[in-house]
């Protein structure tokens, strides 16, 4: 008994030194596509809780900036890992960039259209001829496919990063993400029952969103680093979802470090929505797995929209570390 206790004691005492001594940490960097918020909670939590270090990575989380597309910085070699939407990833891949998706964190599209019931919009048909504000680029793919699907002629107005135009009735319909703008609208005093929501995933336009990307060559050079990063990140997310308040504390700390306004209520809402978006249909153990059907669907819509010429090959685009681990 005493001997066993001593053994445990010495193991605990010396293990970190042993680990540090035997396996030197590999340096790596990660770039989220936006400034710190609960949308990336899993990464911040994994970082703070030392999961990356446990997997042998000395990680640097770069400051996301809407003006710096993560995949551009990835291809330029300014970051080792980047977070990006699947549609963006497929477009970059299709345009010849050797990037690969190693983890599809957000499985369900959070993008949506929101309308006020006071504007008499309760079905997609009611949008005919209405003013709709849309963000640029990737954010327009699903709405445009949606309008096409329902054969709608709408007046598109560019949307800024705020929802003020919508709140002041400058447009009838606005773009929103479920974890962010929708909550902003609710917390500007509009009740959920006064709104009509159109979730794209409910209209057969589910575009999985945030995923982890790296360069094909990086993976070839050191697959263990890539897989360690993915594993640690998933661990971070799992921990964040089971320790919401602690995860929020961590996220808020990162927000404050970035000198941005930190709003716990909003981040809490966001983290809860991320939990639903990442794990709504996962079979156990397949968190982060890009489903082939989802990939095909997004590729198809992109091709139909003329945004890509050929559909990237699923097998070469998505590299699932879980498979290697099993082998």
């Amino acid at each position: 008994m005493l001997r066993a206790g001593l053994c445990v004691f010495f193991c605990i005492l010396f293990f970190p030194f042993v680990a540090a001594a035997e396996i030197p940490l590999k340096k790596a960097s990660f770039l989220p596509q936006w400034s710190p918020q609960a949308q990336f909670a899993g990464y911040y939590v994994a970082y703070e809780k030392g999961f990356y270090k446990n997997h042998g990575i000395d990680l640097t989380i770069l400051q996301g900036d809407p003006d710096r597309p993560p995949l551009l910085l990835l291809t330029e070699g300014k970051t080792d890992f980047a977070s990006s939407w699947l549609s963006t990833g497929l477009r970059w891949r299709s345009s010849g960039h050797k990037i690969i998706n190693v983890c599809q964190m957000v499985q369900r599209s959070a993008l949506m259209l929101v309308a006020k019931k006071s504007h008499h919009i309760t079905t997609p048909r009611d949008m005919e001829g209405k003013k709709v504000s849309l963000w640029g680029d990737e954010f327009q793919i699903q709405p445009r496919a949606f309008f096409k699907k329902y054969d709608l002629n709408v007046k598109i107005v560019p949307q800024s990063f705020s929802v003020n135009l919508f709140l002041r009735d400058g447009v009838d319909v606005a773009s929103a993400t479920w974890y962010n703008e929708y909550h902003t609208i609710i917390n500007s005093g509009i009740n959920p029952d006064e709104l009509t929501t159109f979730f794209f995933h409910e209209h057969d336009l589910n575009f999985p969103e945030d995923g982890i990307y790296t360069l094909e060559e990086s993976f070839k050079r050191d697959p263990s680093l890539v897989c360690a990063f993915v594993k640690a990140s998933i661990e971070g997310w799992v921990y964040a979802f089971s320790h919401l308040e602690e995860a929020l504390d961590i996220v808020l700390r990162f927000i404050q470090q970035a000198k941005l306004p930190a709003n716990r209520t909003h981040q809490k809402w966001m983290l809860n929505r991320m939990k639903e978006l990442t794990s709504f249909s996962d079979p156990p153990g397949s968190m982060g797995m890009l489903q082939q059907a989802d990939c095909q669907k997004v590729s198809l819509v992109l091709k139909e929209s003329g945004l890509i010429e050929r559909k990237p090959d699923y097998e070469s685009f998505f590299v699932w570390c879980g498979k290697d681990v099993e082998k």
Binding site: K131, P158, Q159, S160, S162, N164, L165, R168, D169, G170
Partner: peptide, 13 residues
């Protein structure tokens, strides 16, 4: 500035 609130909102309204 076309996408800014100070410009876009009075324009649209």
């Amino acid at each position: 500035y076309f996408n800014t609130d100070w410009y876009q909102i009075p324009k649209e309204l």
